[in-house]
């Protein structure tokens, strides 16, 4: 039972992350021609990353949970125009599209999870 709902919780966190990331990427597109603007991105730090200690006994202390997403200034393209703007339209659009696909995937998985629960809670038809 908990497994069913924790899957949905994880997927919900993924949906939130992709939604917030879209807002940040939309800001990059809006600032396509703003002098001195550098593109921003949101990086997700998955809680309970492999390097943290496992909590397998009631007495164990969980490692501190960091922020769920952190911002990063993305200069990897180095496509700076003379006015100091470093937004690459193609890269940002590719990111937006990939982000939307990931969002759609998570949304679909939540739907399927709910369908499964409905099936189990119903009379099996």
């Amino acid at each position: 039972m908990t497994a069913n709902f924790s899957t949905i919780d994880h997927l919900q966190a993924a949906l939130t992350y992709h939604r917030e990331r879209h807002t940040v990427l939309a800001g990059n597109i809006a600032n396509l021609d703003t002098p001195g603007y550098r593109s921003a991105d949101l990086v997700r730090q998955v809680q309970g990353d492999p390097s943290s200690l496992a909590v397998s006994e009631p007495g164990h202390i969980a490692s501190a949970a960091g922020p769920d997403f952190v911002t990063s200034l993305d200069d990897s393209g180095k496509l700076q125009s003379p006015d100091g703007n470093a937004v690459s339209l193609e890269r940002e659009l590719a990111k937006i599209d990939a982000n939307r696909t990931r969002y759609a995937t998570s949304a679909e998985l939540v739907s399927r999870r709910f369908a499964l629960l409905r099936y189990a809670a119903g009379d099996g038809t």
């Binding site: 800001g27 600032n31 603007y37 922020p67 911002t71």
Partner: peptide, 9 residues
């Protein structure tokens, strides 16, 4: 926490 990353124009 990431307010500085969200920028309109």
């Amino acid at each position: 926490p990431y307010a500085q990353a969200v920028r309109g124009v």
